[in-house]
Design a protein around this nucleic acid. Sequence first.
DNA 1: CATCGTAATGTTAACGTTGTCATTTGCCAT
DNA 2: ATGGCAAATGACAACGTTAACATTACGATG
Lengths: 336, 336
Amino acid sequence: MSAQMSIAGPEETHSAPTLSAVAKLAGVSSITVSRVVRLPDLVAPETRGRVEAAMRELGYVPNQLAVGLARARTRSIGVLVPTIANSIFADTVQGLSDELEPLGYAVILAQSRYDDAREDHMLSALLSRRPEAIIMVGSPATEDGARLLRRAGIPVAETWDLPAAPIDAVAGFNNYEAGVAVARHLVERGRNNLAFIGGDDPRATRRWNGFNDTAQALGAKAPRRLVLDRNASGSVVALAELPGVDAVFAANDAHAIGFMSGLRKAGLLRDGPAAEQPVAIIGLGDLEMGRLIAPSLSTIRVNGDAIGRTAAQLILTRQGPRHIDLGFELVLRDSG
Amino acid sequence: MSAQMSIAGPEETHSAPTLSAVAKLAGVSSITVSRVVRLPDLVAPETRGRVEAAMRELGYVPNQLAVGLARARTRSIGVLVPTIANSIFADTVQGLSDELEPLGYAVILAQSRYDDAREDHMLSALLSRRPEAIIMVGSPATEDGARLLRRAGIPVAETWDLPAAPIDAVAGFNNYEAGVAVARHLVERGRNNLAFIGGDDPRATRRWNGFNDTAQALGAKAPRRLVLDRNASGSVVALAELPGVDAVFAANDAHAIGFMSGLRKAGLLRDGPAAEQPVAIIGLGDLEMGRLIAPSLSTIRVNGDAIGRTAAQLILTRQGPRHIDLGFELVLRDSG
DNA sequence: CATCGTAATGTTAACGTTGTCATTTGCCAT
DNA sequence: ATGGCAAATGACAACGTTAACATTACGATG
């Protein structure tokens, strides 16, 4: 695919009808048509009827670009996520979009793919669309990105984390404490040989830090950390690289389920309760799947949908607290 | 939340710098700045340097709304999906977005939530942003929606199905034949008491039709159809409503895994191969999870990522075939 | 009956860019 | 010297809409 490639044109270029096309057909001026759309009470019923008929006949759809230019309000918001296919963030996009779409906002979606340069690029591309706010997972990875957002002078919501120096609003949870909670639970249950598997993005790293610090403080062996690529299948073979491990914290449920599959192949998975598992495994995210499989997956539950809805509300108003900790919950099931 | 709610304003309203703000600072006219951005070769190196410095100093980001208005090319595409959260469609959005973002296109995302009225509304909202193309899952549910798309005069890609009378381009697979393949497989393996569980959207219904027609043609008992709400948990208890069933086709893998969980509780799930399962279960989508759980999930594999990429390519060009059948594949594992 | 208010409609100038023509240089060939 | 030409830059009108002000018609008011 060449970079000059562009959208194919329609067979017949009948460009969309404009306000003045409708006006001409209805025998009024364009501003009257505009009023029929926005302030129908100001237009005489008889005139309004004629205009509405003309709009229907031509299939008039207002041009939001022009509206946005004229009013300096685009009714759109930019959303930046690392990836959308990895459903942990899909819930958040769904949540914020359910909150915003009924209000007439369009969601402009961009993916950084965990790539700092691409993140900056997408941020700038997003901003060039003049969204009224930006919602992103995490914080800008570079100072350039942060500066871009600050200069834009629009509400910004950072999510899925609690950054120390946020740009504006925050809707997330404490990733470090999540790691602490998991390590404490595992060590208290007598596990001694811990490992952390997952990505090495900032949020995963914060979980690792909490996990590592706590495990060592409580007297367990120094945990190992295995950085895996993004798809769960990689974690199936992780076991081979962790000889002697008796408890694993996975950065997300997909990795946890992949690792469970590896344990099963190695004959190290029991159908019984957590105490009987040769290797305990705890995930993060609380995917619906985790509840349905056997053994059921213990996990740090994070409400991605609520994060999205909260972020939406934060950018809709300046009242009230700007930094919201949605918390997490250690949900214990059969895996650890 | 009231409907009049709107984005909170920034503390200090320093609206974004414009072309002419940069021009003034650099001591040139706005058109020269415009050329530095688009056609740098036309500007003398010395001037260009001054302009670039001014752009950097002001943090200039071009206003794509104005560009779009002036050039009648918005470099954006509208994407309409039923839902984005834990669904097979996230892969498609990821795929098309990976294809389109590097080319400078913005993805405007909208969800219909399987609601016909909302779909029409979102279609119209999308079109008001003047996207250069529309990619949607399925086909417009109403004639109004179809008319809207046809009148827009832009490329339209319908996906995840092979509509009989498509508006323009198609990237999907034959849902009816998927149902046929599953029914044939199950009946040939000696299953006789079949059921179909899942939603009742048009695509699921087409799968059901193929499934039902084929099962009966091959002499099995008339299959039952159980319509469930959208989340997988509903399918956990589906078993109770299907006494005597010995094979189930689920409209997607999430439902299949939910149903498996119900089978497990009922003691009707074996760790062995498909032939030993009291109740065979086959899903659709080939979620990574399905491969990792035990027993592993048999499924109709559909490449959602390829659907998205293909749809993107179809709207980027008019050459070549406009209707692409990406096919599907019956992947047999331990569940049925 | 002149004045005023109000309902209904219209005019004009933005919004920030780009396309389409100028215009100003300086230099080269004649 | 002089016309011609290219390189560099600029003026101005679009693009489709809205904000702010202007105009009309007409019945009510003193």
